[in-house]
Every structure is written in structure tokens, then in C-alpha cells.
Nucleic acid binder design. Structure first.
Lengths: 295, 295
DNA sequence: TGTTATCATCAATAAATTCTTATGATATAA
DNA sequence: TTATATCATAAGAATTTATTGATGATAACA
């Protein structure tokens, strides 16, 4: 393809519009020979004359008319690009890519909804996965931000606490312990607990709690989702430990009860996380500060 | 608006496509720092980062993705322009603007049709007018070529004969002279002639002919179109002198007769004309040589 | 007919830009 | 940890682009 420059095109456009080299030169703050030169080079590139001079007047040739059309189209594209980019520079537009661990899915949508209502032109891509997949996405730079219950070690990230994460012990609605107050940890000796899988943050915190209280619990039942844990607990298969956010609905309807255990709830935190050195987009930056400054 | 260059855009496009400054540099036969610099300048123009580097890998930012889209659009427009212009360079496409005097309208369409059948992608704009309007269009550079029976003096044009223009004397089908042979000019003394208006080429030639033969004819009837002359002659209002091309049909059907007059037909010519210094388009040039070399 | 407006061209030089070479910094991978 | 790949940066060279000032050609205009 031929080697045009925008300079050539915009000079050409000006000459064509003004039907005059001299007027174009004035308009572009150039001297007339400079304009002549640019047009000449352009004509050499194209391989066809673009203008013809009949006396004092300048006319576009057939080729010139075609090129004029395309130069206007291109100028239009540029103007559009300019607009879009300047919108991105502000906060009117943009896309927020965020990945959250499954537990966070119980409150993240509300937060996003609230944020979006303040910035109507923003697109959000919310990705829900287990801790491992969220970390992978973060590492592969597929998302701007992630919400985790425990900041990753190893990879270089910046993590900020923005919300508490209360772990509570739950039981089925009619469970005998449901009515008791100030239950000591020792009461759970040999109780059956439905747990999330090995490696889950909730599970780690749970195990730490019981071992520090020298209580031995049965942890035979292992579920890979919070929903499964809730179902199992409701069915009376045992007790569970979950983030309070995930059980609000069931507690309200009485299907599950939060036990009043001493030293509970365990307070953990939710972290908003991104890779160090990550150049956050305007939107991502805004969402981050939204989380950190809210309330 | 910001001041982009195609250089910046195409370097950007290459970097974005390759996800690598170094690969882009190889592709464009540049050194890597040159690429870095172009991108840096582009980012300064735009006012937003376009890429982010996470370790060894390069990613487009949101702004980069938008710009990538537009750079592809613009590249597409350029490719299209390139195609159209190279077609114009050949003879596959183009537009022929031609203006002809009304008499020439009896044969010009056939010539154009023949020419177009050889170049199917060509557009033609045929303009028919009286001599005066044709000359004005030529002068105002509104047409590439014109067909005239007499090249204009005064304005600077290039004119080439491409066809004979035979002027004949016509009479109504049943006219007494129609049967005679070798009619001398003197026989037309005091005959009534239906003529085109003052200034018409046909009329000039006619007057010259009779005055050089010392014959006085009656020229009271003046018509502004060839069709009107033919109608008047058919109606028996007098004789007429017209270009043979305009009466072929009527002669064939017997409504008009061409008289067998001594020193007739008067041979004049058809000229293909364009302004001197006019840069003819490929198509116009082709049509001109088509006329000059045909048969 | 002379005057004016317009574009083309040239040479010398100035200004801006683009590119290269050389080097540094950093993260990944062996 | 060392080697490698990758991009950033700086200084100077090379290239491109524009200016100035002069000149020429042409057609419109008065």
C-alpha cells in the first residue's frame, strides 16, 4: 500500500475544501510552497493527479474526488475516536473487569449496582469463581480487580481491606443449640461440621479456631459450594461455618439459625486486590475508591 | 483534535496485533526503541496509556482497545481508497463527463454505447445543449470533453476532427426537386429555406455556400431546433439544410428526401474538444483516442 | 493591455521528527 | 541464582518538513 501521512491528507482536505492552495496555506498556518509540496508528494504517492488548475481556479480530478471522500471518512473516524477516548479519560464511559470469589457473589452485585447507578455509561464484567481461578485471572491480567477473602502471597499484588467478613456457625432451624446463648467452643466436641473443601479460606479460619480451643470436631462432609453447605445443614446433616453474608436470606426465613457462640463471629475481611504496577483504568480506580471510602 | 500520524497508528496497530514492541519493530523494520518512542508519543497525544506491561507480556488498556478498533477502521478505509485509486489508474472505473451540441445527439449515444461496452465499469454523464451552453460548460471545467461542429476561437482548446459532418439539402417527400439529378445551385434562387437560428454552424456554412454561388435565397423561417426544421420541411414550408446524421430516419421512411445538388454534400467536420492544459482522466483520454482511431 | 491573483519551482537554511546505538531496569524461566 | 527476554531512556545522527525569498507561468480582470 502507499505511504500516506495524515499531514498530506489534512492538507489535501483543506485544499479541496477551499479550492485553493493559498487559502489552505493560510488555514493551516503554512506557506504556499509548503502546501504545493505536500500535495505534490501526495500525488506521487497516489500515482494520479488530484487537482487541476484551469486558470486561477482549482478543481478536483476524478481521483481527487474519490480521495476527498475517503479523507472525510477517515477524519470522521478520527473524530469519533477522539470523542470515545476523551470520554474514557473522564468517567463517563469505560469497562470494569472484576473477578470475585464465589462467596463474595452474595454482596458484590449490590455494590456494583450501587456504583453503576452513579456512572450510568459504565459496563461491568463480573466474573465469579473459586479462589484459584480468581487468582489465575488476576495473574493473567484478565481482570482489573478481584475481591478475595485473603490476599494472595507469592504474586505481587496490592490488597486493601474494604469490608468485614463475619464467619458464623449455622444450624438447621430446629436444632437444639439454636435456642442456647453464649455457647462455649467446647460444646462442639465431636459435633459434625459440613465444611468447604481443603484450601478454602473459611475452612482455614475454622480449623484454626477449633485447634486453638482444643476442640476436636468431625469434618467428614466436604462440599465445594456454599449453597451445598447450606443445603446439608438445613437437612440436619451437621453444623456449618460460613460467611454471614451468604446466609442472610435463610436466617430471615428461619431455615437456618446463627448460633450464639462465644468468640464468634470470627472477624475476617474482604480485600479488593489488583496486581502491583497495574495501570488501573479510570473506572477501576473509581470502583476501588468507591469501595474503600463507602460508609 | 489531537495530532496523530499514520506512522504512530500503524506502529500502534502492529504492537497491538503482536502484543509485543519487539515483534512490531521487526515487522516494521525498525529498532525497538523507535517503536517505544512512537507509542509514547501516541500515548501523550491521546492522554491515556494504551498498553500496560505486566512482566514480559503486553496488554492493551481499555483505551488501547478502543483505539485499536479505530485504527483498524481507518486502515480499512485506506485500503479501500487504495483500491479505488488504483482502479482509476487503470481503466476499470471512472466517469466520463461529456457535453455535445444538440445535432451531435443523433450519433453520440451510439458512440458512447460502443465505448462503454468495452469498459463496463465506466459511468458516463452526457450533456446535450446548444453550442453556447456547451462552450460555457467547457469553459467552466464542468465537462472533460465536448463534441462540436466548429472549434471555438477565443478560448484555448485542443480540437481534433474525428468524423465527417455532411450537410445536405432536404425537401419534403413529394417535392418536385426530389426527382431531379445534379441540381445546380442557381435553381435555388428565391427558394424558401428553413434555417437554424443565427450563429448556428449549419447556418453559417449554408450562407457561405449560397453567397459564393451568388444565389439569393429566402431565409425568413428560423427554427431553434433541428426537429423543428424537419417538421417545417415535411409540412412543405420550404427546403432545409441539415447534417445528414439528423435526417437518416426520415429519409429511410420517405418523409424527407435528400436533394442531389451539385457541390453537395458540404463536408464539414465533427470535433472532439477539450481545454488546453486539461489533465484528462484515464477514461476521457481513452474515449478521445477511441474516437480518433475508430475505423 | 497591463495588472493582479494564483500556483509551480528552486536554493539555502532552519526546525521538527524519526531512527539508531548504547545502556539500564525488570520480570520470567532455566 | 543466573541467563534471557523485554521494554525504557538518553544522546546524537539522519531524515523529513517547512521557511524565506526569489522567480516564472498563466489566466482572469479591469
Amino acid at each position: 500500500m502507499f505511504h500516506l501521512t495524515f499531514r498530506q491528507l489534512s492538507v489535501f482536505e483543506s485544499v479541496a475544501r477551499n479550492s485553493s492552495f493559498s487559502r489552505a496555506a493560510e488555514e493551516m498556518h503554512l506557506t504556499q510552497p509548503a502546501v504545493s509540496m505536500q500535495i505534490k508528494q501526495l500525488e506521487e504517492n497516489v500515482g494520479l493527479p488530484l487537482f487541476e488548475q484551469m486558470g486561477k481556479k482549482i478543481f478536483l480530478t476524478e481521483a481527487g474526488k474519490e480521495l476527498y471522500h475517503y479523507s472525510k471518512m477517515i477524519a470522521q473516524q478520527l473524530a469519533e475516536a477522539s470523542l470515545v477516548l476523551s470520554e474514557l479519560k473522564g468517567l463517563e464511559r469505560g469497562k470494569l473487569n472484576i473477578s470475585v470469589v464465589s462467596t463474595a457473589n452474595y454482596f458484590a452485585p449490590q455494590l456494583l449496582a450501587q456504583f453503576c447507578s452513579q456512572h450510568p455509561e459504565i459496563n461491568v464484567s463480573l466474573n465469579v469463581g473459586n479462589r484459584e481461578s480468581v487468582l489465575k485471572q488476576l495473574h493473567d491480567n484478565e481482570v482489573d480487580l478481584a475481591i478475595l477473602g485473603r490476599p494472595p502471597e507469592g504474586i505481587d499484588v496490592e490488597a486493601h481491606i474494604f469490608m468485614e467478613n463475619r464467619l458464623v456457625i449455622i444450624a438447621a432451624g430446629g436444632h437444639p443449640l439454636a435456642a442456647e446463648r453464649h455457647i462455649p467452643a467446647s460444646r462442639f466436641q465431636n459435633e459434625t461440621f459440613i465444611m468447604r473443601e481443603q484450601g478454602s479460606g473459611t475452612r482455614l479460619a475454622t480449623e484454626k479456631f477449633f485447634s486453638s480451643h482444643n476442640v476436636l470436631v468431625k469434618t467428614g462432609m466436604e462440599m465445594s459450594t456454599n449453597e451445598a453447605v447450606k443445603q446439608a445443614v438445613q437437612a440436619g446433616m451437621g453444623l456449618g461455618i460460613l460467611s454471614m453474608d451468604t446466609v442472610l436470606l435463610e436466617v430471615e426465613t428461619g431455615r437456618l439459625k446463627i448460633l450464639d457462640v462465644e468468640d464468634f463471629p470470627i472477624i475476617r475481611h474482604w480485600y479488593i486486590v489488583h496486581r502491583q504496577n497495574k495501570r488501573l483504568s479510570g473506572v477501576a480506580e473509581a470502583f476501588k475508591t468507591f469501595l474503600l471510602t463507602k460508609k
